[in-house]
């Protein structure tokens, strides 16, 4: 057999024998970023459509997870940096050619917006807060103070009260802005990877839409898991089935593109078809993370009771594993040796 044997003398840490520079931090961030993007999108979407009373969980409760997810994601991103104390350099330039640069700026914008969104609904979601007893009350008293009436608390500072009124008054405008930025955030989690042309597995334009749809699917799963209203549960279950079908379709396209592509992409696809990621991807992502929850949701909708936590957990789990697999496998794919 004619073959080429390559021996490289390079042994740089994290680069050789195979590139392994990004560890758990990046996939965790990509997962949380996609989840937050989806939660904020649905919340904003149903406010714009004037359906906030029909979907209270999606609009008021589930978005509470968004700023938490973004903050944990940002901490993960920070931990990933190797020259940490210079992180502020990200905010000294806007480099439109670099997805990481505009991603950092989008996060800078959407993080405060997500806090504003949650803050605007806080009195509706938590009308009673115990500020009298316990350790937590001491922390809560940093921003809240006691008050009379149906809502037993107020913002501690008057400007926050005024700001809250402004947010409630301008909620629809805020929703439009959040809708726009949540879409960018959702696509960005995929574009981040697809911009690296040296990694054939990532270097495909369909990664943006896949990560967007997958993020929205995990968000829909979270909403239906958190919701107590049967109608809302059912609605988000239907949305989720649709998103799963779209995602499966995109994944099929991803591999069609690889198999019709150059040798390096054929090799990249081989990692998932008989290669070392076959089980992780086939079993955990496609079967357990997409097909099974879709079947459970269809069963539930057609009257066979399946506890909602099962499909919801599977979708979240599948979404997380998907990002781990893409980041790990992508770093293995390459042009040279």
């Amino acid at each position: 057999m004619k073959e080429e044997l390559i021996i490289s003398g390079r042994m740089n840490p994290n680069i050789d024998p195979v590139l392994h520079l990004w560890h758990w931090e990046i996939p965790v961030y990509l997962f949380l970023g996609g989840l937050a993007a989806g939660l904020l999108f649905f919340a904003a979407f149903y406010v714009i459509r004037d359906e906030k009373d029909r979907f209270p969980t999606a609009v008021k409760i589930a978005p509470i997870l968004a700023p938490i997810a973004i903050i944990i994601g940002l901490i993960a991103l920070f931990l990933d940096l190797k020259h940490k104390l210079f992180f502020w350099r990200l905010y000294t330039v806007i480099r439109l050619e670099s997805p990481m640069s505009w991603g950092a700026w989008v996060l800078m914008i959407i993080t405060p917006l997500s806090f504003m969104w949650v803050g605007g609904f806080l009195k509706e979601v938590f009308p009673k807060i115990d500020l009298k007893k316990g350790f937590s009350s001491k922390l809560l008293k940093l921003v809240f103070k006691e008050s009379e009436g149906e809502v037993n608390w107020k913002w501690k500072y008057n400007f926050l009260e005024t700001f809250e009124k402004f947010i409630i008054f301008r909620r629809k405008e805020l929703a439009w802005v959040i809708l726009f930025y949540s879409l960018i955030l959702g696509v960005y989690t995929g574009i981040l990877l697809s911009a690296f042309n040296a990694r054939p597995l990532w270097n495909t334009a369909i990664l943006g839409p896949i990560f967007l749809v997958s993020g929205f699917s995990t968000a829909a799963a979270s909403i239906m898991w958190m919701s107590k209203l049967p109608e809302e549960k059912k609605w988000f279950s239907k949305i989720d089935i649709m998103l799963i079908i779209i995602e499966l379709f995109f994944i099929l396209h991803l591999f069609m593109g690889f198999l019709a592509g150059p040798q390096v992409q054929v090799d990249a696809a081989a990692l998932f078809w008989g290669g070392q990621f076959t089980v992780y991807f086939g079993l955990f992502v496609v079967i357990l993370g997409l097909i099974m929850p879709a079947i459970f949701e269809v069963m539930e909708l057609s009257g066979i009771h399946v506890h909602i936590s099962i499909p919801a957990f599977l979708i979240l789990f599948g979404g997380l594993i998907f990002r781990f697999v893409m980041v790990e496998a992508g770093q293995i794919t390459r042009y040279l040796y």
């Binding site: 520079l21 990004w22 992180f87 911009a195 040296a198 390459r334 040279l336």
Partner: peptide, 13 residues
């Protein structure tokens, strides 16, 4: 900042 974007994008490692 040590984000690794350039390392990921270099086909020559």
């Amino acid at each position: 900042i040590g984000c690794g974007a350039c390392i990921q994008s270099c086909p020559y490692d």
